[in-house]
């Protein structure tokens, strides 16, 4: 069987976008989108964990009894999260400081358990890996976009580079209210476009 990667990518980024369409994994989305860089770091960690856990869960799907599948999935996911956690702590300490508790919390990110349950537990290994990658990319792109928006609105910068023609400070966008309101408005915008299309 062959997998059309392009179609899968479209599915991950547009039709089944984890953040904007399925609205899963709110906590890390809100907490780590304070800047484009933090968001990208979080997104890449999620891609790594999601791909590896999808692969292993798909390999084990016929071995794990149905009744204990959730705890078994969580063990697999937690293992990879620990690996990522230690790697980031060792190699990118500033990112580790910025993301803090939200790295170990990838383990309870609904997206990862959701994909394990909805996809990897029912499909062969290769499609599950592809699913992990495309869903991870969808998550990363949306998260980075939100991060860039909030960084731009709060300080006129994206990825730490000043892009706004004037200097301003709007700390609220980095704080909690800014996170909720930005995501709310983006979701409303997407709904608006979608309503117009249909």
């Amino acid at each position: 069987m062959s997998i059309n990667f392009k179609n899968e990518l479209y599915r991950g980024i547009v039709t089944e976008n984890p953040i904007f369409r399925i609205v899963l994994g709110m906590c890390p989305t809100l907490a780590t989108s304070t800047s484009a860089m933090n968001a990208l770091g979080m997104g890449v960690s999620v891609i790594a964990v999601l791909t590896c856990s999808n692969m292993v869960i798909s390999m084990l799907r016929n071995v794990i009894p149905d009744k204990v599948r959730i705890p078994a999935f969580i063990v697999v996911i937690a293992t990879f999260v620990t690996v990522v956690d230690l790697l980031i702590a060792a190699f990118i300490p500033p990112l580790y400081e910025a993301l803090g508790i939200f790295i170990p919390l990838i383990v309870v990110n609904c997206i990862i358990l959701g994909r394990a349950e909805a996809y990897a537990a029912k499909n062969p290994v290769v499609p599950s890996i592809v699913d992990g990658i495309v869903m991870g990319i969808g998550f990363t792109l949306s998260l980075t976009m939100l991060g860039a928006m909030r960084e731009f609105l709060s300080a006129g910068m994206i990825f730490g580079y000043a892009v706004a023609p004037f200097k301003h400070q709007f700390i609220l966008m980095i704080l909690a209210p800014g996170a909720f309101i930005t995501l709310g408005l983006v979701l409303a915008g997407i709904n608006f476009i979608q309503n117009k299309e249909s």
Partner: peptide
């Protein structure tokens, strides 16, 4: 209509 559900809840 576009604000129904999640968007208005988040705001």
């Amino acid at each position: 209509r576009a604000m129904e559900g999640f968007p208005i809840a988040l705001i």
